[in-house]
Simulated assay, not measured.
Amino acid sequence: MFGLAYRMLGSAAEAEDVVQDAYLRWSGTDRDHIDRPGAWLAKVVTNLCLNRLTSARARREQYPGPWLPEPVVTEDAALGPLESAERRDAVSMALLVLLERLTPTERAVYVLREAFAYSHREIAGVLDISEANSRQLHRRAAARVASAETRFTERDERRHRELVESFVAAAREGNLAALERTLAADVVWVSDGGGVVSAARRPIEGRDKVVRFLGGLLKGDVNALRMEWRELNGAPALLGWSGSTLAAVASFVVRDGAIATVHNILNPQKLAFLERRLSHSGGPAGSQR
């Protein structure tokens, strides 16, 4: 239920609320009349998410600067088994950003079909639509996210981490030339500060602009952060800690041997769920200076 709600909403905190609401409905229902509990719960969770997405779209249009999903640890199978590249891709930060382009119903069809392998007959039952409409919505949704270049092979994933480690080492040393070599010519840097902390209000596009931006950033206190690797949303991500406070999370899209996109989450409200989850599992681990 959490995995479905998170994929629908892009918010771990809201997904938890949806699961709680679904549980309350389940507790107050005569279960003798429910033949298929899994289908019943999927329908309840999906419809609760659809209700939230309607208001969320309006809020996100007013959001200060770029909106990014909340990061979630996937090492503990919180979003279900991710044993294949396709399943990891289905929860990647890049794909969740693309899902924001879809209407709520398109998103529901896409998630149920792609992430949970529901048949169009099952999706029709969940959403109270026809099978033909489900197929049409899925084709439309798939076409709108087809431009995503976020899929990685196992070998690419190892290269992904090596490349990001080179990026971090160059940043630590303040070596802008080495930093530049890790970036694609059309790299995009997206920061989500939510108007709560200082962050670029627009995506920064192009290698030269990103390097200039990072040059200014490195003059600040970024080197005071303790860095940690974790698997977030199915891929290696970099966490920056200031003492016991999670201050930043960066995820990277790698394409053709270079960093193509950086999603940098700074909004403390977006990091609260992850920080709480990590504190329950023993806090930062595998950190590096």
Rank of each mutant, 00 (worst) to 15 (best):
P66H: 15
R230P: 04
A124Q: 03
P236Q: 10
A171P: 03
A117G: 00
A247P: 03
V126S: 05
S119T: 15
T74Y: 07
R107Y: 06
L137G: 04
G38Y: 12
L96T: 12
Q288H: 10
A148R: 08
R60Y: 04
S281A: 14
A78R: 13
Y23F: 14
A184Y: 00
D128S: 15
V19Q: 09
R121G: 08
K270T: 09
G240K: 09
L127C: 10
A142L: 13
V222W: 14
A39W: 13
R60F: 09
A177P: 02
E149H: 08
A141W: 07
E70R: 07
I34D: 01
V19L: 02
E180K: 13
R201G: 12
A146W: 04
L4M: 13
P81V: 14
N175M: 05
N133E: 15
L274F: 06
R52E: 13
A184P: 00
R87T: 08
T150Y: 00
T182K: 04
A260V: 04
D32H: 11
V249S: 09
W229L: 08
E231A: 06
L246Q: 06
L278A: 04
G10E: 02
S166M: 06
E16G: 03
N47M: 09
R172G: 01
R135S: 09
R113E: 03
G195V: 12
A185H: 04
V187H: 02
A108C: 12
G283C: 10
R158S: 10
L163E: 06
Q20V: 08
T150F: 00
A169C: 01
